[in-house]
């Protein structure tokens, strides 16, 4: 038998994570671990705490309790191990697309190094810009670009620094459906070429299932042994599916297996009337684990 993996073997490992705003518990005992190279998507009803989870992983917010490790080291404040693409505000409005892409280089090198290696940096930046099909717009400012182009530039800006894990917070949320589909295809392509690890938060179930090799469903619609007080309960990962990576053609969206998957996720995470018990979550992904407390399982009442 294979030896079970330990926290250090995972790229991202989260255990017993809690977060509340005021009296309201948002994240309730979240456990998850991610191996390198996966495209994880997190989906859930709006307001369930997906973005909060992402901001905590990023280090922009602090958890109340629990551990987050990246490559076996505590996550702590934001650093270069994590890249981020937001829905908005990822680009700096005062820099051209090229300068935005170069920013990581410029920030990591002193004046003298920048002078000497400028050509080399620029070449690399232009290479990345051509990867996101923006090389012709390198001299433009962000406000001169369309929404999809801005997001592509933001992806190039984050990618070029080769973060261990790229966090994306609804990156395509503000785009029109056609652009959105283009961007999804584009992201899959890029992910396959670059072999990156991506943690992708979205409220769009179809997008999550289509993009991910692994999908987390975050939801507060579940039951456990703590009684029926909704206020005391926050969102948990109610399902964790391994998705066989399929050809990145968008006709998969019409296949019965895909539609069935969406249905099962919708029942598990999005339907307030269907309450699965915490012991019965569909956590079939090999890396999935769950540490329920005694009060959640009801052991303490026996």
């Amino acid at each position: 038998m294979q030896t079970p993996k330990r926290a250090n073997d995972y790229l991202l490992h989260i255990e017993d994570l809690y977060k509340s705003y005021g009296n309201k518990l948002i994240l309730d005992n979240i456990d998850l671990s991610v191996t390198s190279g996966e495209l994880c998507t997190v989906v859930g009803p709006s307001g369930c705490g997906k973005s909060t989870l992402l901001r905590i992983i990023l280090g922009q917010e602090a958890q109340d309790r629990g551990h987050i490790h990246i490559d076996g080291k505590p996550a702590d404040f934001p650093d270069t191990r994590r890249g981020i693409v937001y829905q908005r505000y990822s680009l700096f409005p005062n820099l051209t697309v090229l300068d935005n892409t170069l920013l990581g280089f410029n920030l990591r090198h002193n004046w003298w190094q920048r002078r000497r290696q400028r050509k080399q940096f620029e070449q690399q930046a232009l290479h990345y810009l051509s990867r996101v099909r923006l090389e012709e717009h390198a001299g433009k400012y962000p406000h001169e670009l369309s929404g999809g182009m801005q997001q592509r530039a933001a992806i190039a800006q984050a990618l070029i620094m080769r973060p261990r894990i790229l966090l994306m917070d609804e990156p395509f949320g503000a785009l029109d459906p056609q652009t959105r589909e283009d961007m999804q295809l584009f992201l899959l392509e890029l992910w396959e070429q670059e072999k990156m690890t991506i943690f992708f938060v979205t409220h769009d179930l179809e997008e999550a299932a289509y993009l991910g090799t692994r999908i987390f469903v975050l939801s507060r619609f579940y039951s456990d042994e703590r009684g029926h007080d909704e206020q005391q309960r926050g969102a948990k990962i109610v399902a964790d599916h391994h998705l066989p990576q399929v050809a990145s053609a968008s006709d998969i969206k019409k296949q019965p297996a895909f539609i069935e998957l969406l249905e099962s996720i919708r029942r598990a995470g999005f339907d307030p009337d269907v309450l699965q018990h915490a012991r019965e979550f569909n956590l079939q992904h090999p890396d999935a684990f769950q540490t329920l407390t005694d009060s959640e399982t009801g052991i303490d009442k026996i």
Binding site: Q60, T80, R88, N94
Partner: peptide, 24 residues
């Protein structure tokens, strides 16, 4: 978000103040 973003790109705290925010 801009501050966080700059830090993930490798900015030090002084970089954030004088190279990211100041020009804006």
């Amino acid at each position: 978000e801009q501050v966080t973003k700059a830090i993930t790109l490798g900015a030090s705290q002084l970089d954030v103040v004088y190279r990211v925010i100041l020009p804006q």
